[in-house]
Design a protein around this nucleic acid. Structure first.
Lengths: 352, 352
DNA sequence: CCCTATTAGTGTAACGATACACTAAGTCTT
DNA sequence: AAGACTTAGTGTATCGTTACACTAATAGGG
């Protein structure tokens, strides 16, 4: 119960505390194998584990990284969090989890708590358009890796980012629906406070333009801004579907900003007796686990989430350990269209 | 960039470091309001945050709690993790996340890492039947709160537990199906290495017995034990459905060990052209967010997950802060049956 | 107006590990 | 055999905070 210290080990092994410390820190070439073994035995006999607090106080860094996601209850971010934790754990780091609800105040408060805890690197699962709330911490020396924050943001500083090309993602989706004959395509985006959403919307608009289809702003549902945090993505998707399907000229296909919203669109369509895919094609982005096995398997864009998680952790740890003042890194991984059963050829009539 | 310390604050406010420390630790009655304000201003001017490492080294405890779940990628545990984080954050604690895949070695390794990091309390989202791998840490002084570990376990020690009555849960479900006329009821449990699963199975058996229905062990699918960790709950549910629906006398209803498995059963039924609920009734346990809005909304047992999370955090922090050597606490919260559309009256024929 | 309480602070020794400069032997080299 | 070098360690100050024992000054009571 009373904590065993390096001094206890030293006493038992009949060496100085310095030698124990040397062994612990890989300077084992500085002692004879016999001494090494004696220390090793003492460590095991006492069940000694070094105090991270003391170590951190002395060395100035801790084996923790922060992970801030909108909500780990969302399957996409839950999955991301899992891979991040797995990768970090393999590299000897532990993950401190925070849920931001995409609220910049919460992000800031959380990041500051982490700084106080000695954490010097944070992975963000979301990228708010506004990033300046973290500028102070960045200047103090905090490192950030953001899931998809491309270089085009006008922030006061630029963090590393890793993700997919979101413009390309919706381009693939839009082209797919156009090829199926759809001409009135709805878009359920929710609040466009994140860069990835802005880009997804842009890919959608661009592709329509290129196909010479006039853009009807009515077909883009951004949701109510107020109650965002408390309402789940599913519920938002449902509201979006209700809105779009109640238009005087409803769309025959809907792209949702992500798969959870798409499931909400399923639910909304079902509420109104609209059948997917017969009456309405639906497509999402993310390819969460459920999308493949839902009763109507969802057409979507697969994000290489495991790779993104792995690379994010690698990037962050590299920054942490070789505090290289390199240029920020922006990686864009390929994403791919996965056609399942939720999209079908335009039946020549509106959804309802 | 250079860390500001309590001494910097003291210098600026023209007081001793002790006074700053006193203010920081709520002993503000020991100084005049004017002094207090001077210190406060200095803290803000310098953007000072105390070093947790130093504080921890001195006081011996850290504002961290561990959370170990099978996988945060699973929506149920993701949701649990979110509520735990929220509650902990409100109480000034931060959450260190670990994914165990329900592997006791991983649990142990993780718990030891946490101990080394100064963490003195862990919340477990799963309760392996075997618990002894944590006995050493328990003796050293680690506190555990487990999601549902009832008193009946024959472990070397007993931790606090909070959860629902799982026997009651499957009793409600089984009675519901019996009332709908089902007599051959399948059960997709997956590996029964967790206490909650054992109890759920027990509730199922007991209720059948009470109804004088002979138990056919064939109807209980426990899955392959080997590849467990890597296979998702959905995939397991699907395999279970394939197995049960291919029996010479298939069941007309299936209870799944949780909602994710139930979605897997949906998928498995769909693979074989079996319609839910017309041909097959399906019920789950958990009531995750998706269950209410899936294309066939799922009949399930609602777990008061938010309350469980809240109480778990409260319990743990109480143990941490008032190291009361009280008796272990075992709380059982009520759960309730939620009937949706995935269960229907027995049609008088087997599923296929 | 002296003695005792109270108020408003301060000084110092830890907490446990580490890095660096140091030393006392032993080993080469020529 | 003397000097240089290597090996195998050790001593000590330090990281930033806190708890506790301490003190100086003011206030109150008789």
């Amino acid at each position: 119960m009373a904590k065993t210290t390096i001094a206890d080990v030293a006493r038992l092994a009949d060496v100085s505390a310095s030698s124990v410390s040397n062994l612990l820190n890989g300077r084992s070439q500085r002692m004879r194998p016999a001494t090494q073994e004696r220390i090793q035995n003492a460590i095991e006999a006492l069940g000694f584990t070094p105090s991270l607090a003391a170590r951190q106080l002395k060395t100035g860094h801790s084996p923790f990284i922060g992970l801030i996601v909108p909500s780990v209850a969302d399957p996409f971010f839950g999955c991301f969090a899992r891979y991040v934790e797995e990768e970090a754990s393999e590299k000897g780091y532990q993950v401190l989890l925070g849920n931001s609800d995409r609220n910049s105040d919460r992000e800031k408060r959380y990041a500051e708590m982490l700084w106080g805890s000695g954490v010097r690197g944070i992975i963000f699962g979301s990228s708010l358009v506004k990033f300046d709330h973290l500028a102070d911490l960045y200047r103090e020396g905090m490192h950030f890796v953001s899931f998809y924050r491309s270089a085009h943001s006008g922030a006061q500083f630029i963090a590393d980012s890793i993700g997919v090309d979101n413009i390309q993602a919706t381009r693939l989706l839009t082209k797919h629906l156009l090829a199926l004959g759809h001409r009135r395509i709805g878009f359920v985006s929710g609040p466009t406070d994140m860069i990835c959403r802005l880009d997804r919307l842009e890919g959608f608009y661009k592709t329509l333009e290129e196909a010479n289809i006039s853009i009807d702003k009515q077909l883009v549902w951004e949701g109510a801004n107020g109650d965002f945090g408390s309402t789940s993505f599913i519920e938002l998707g449902r509201q979006g579907a209700h809105y779009l399907l109640s238009l005087s000229e409803p769309p025959s296909a809907i792209i949702a900003i992500n798969d959870m919203h798409a499931f909400g669109v399923y639910a909304g369509a079902r509420d109104l007796g609209v059948k997917v895919p017969e009456d309405l094609s639906v497509a999402g982005i993310d390819d969460i686990m459920l999308s493949a096995v839902s009763v109507t398997p969802l057409t979507t864009i697969k994000q290489p989430i495991r790779d993104i998680a792995r690379l994010s952790v690698e990037r962050l740890i590299d920054r942490l350990e070789n505090d290289s003042a390199q240029e920020p890194v922006h990686l864009m991984l390929p994403s791919s269209l996965i056609v399942r059963e939720s999209t079908s050829r335009y039946a020549g009539r509106p959804a309802r």
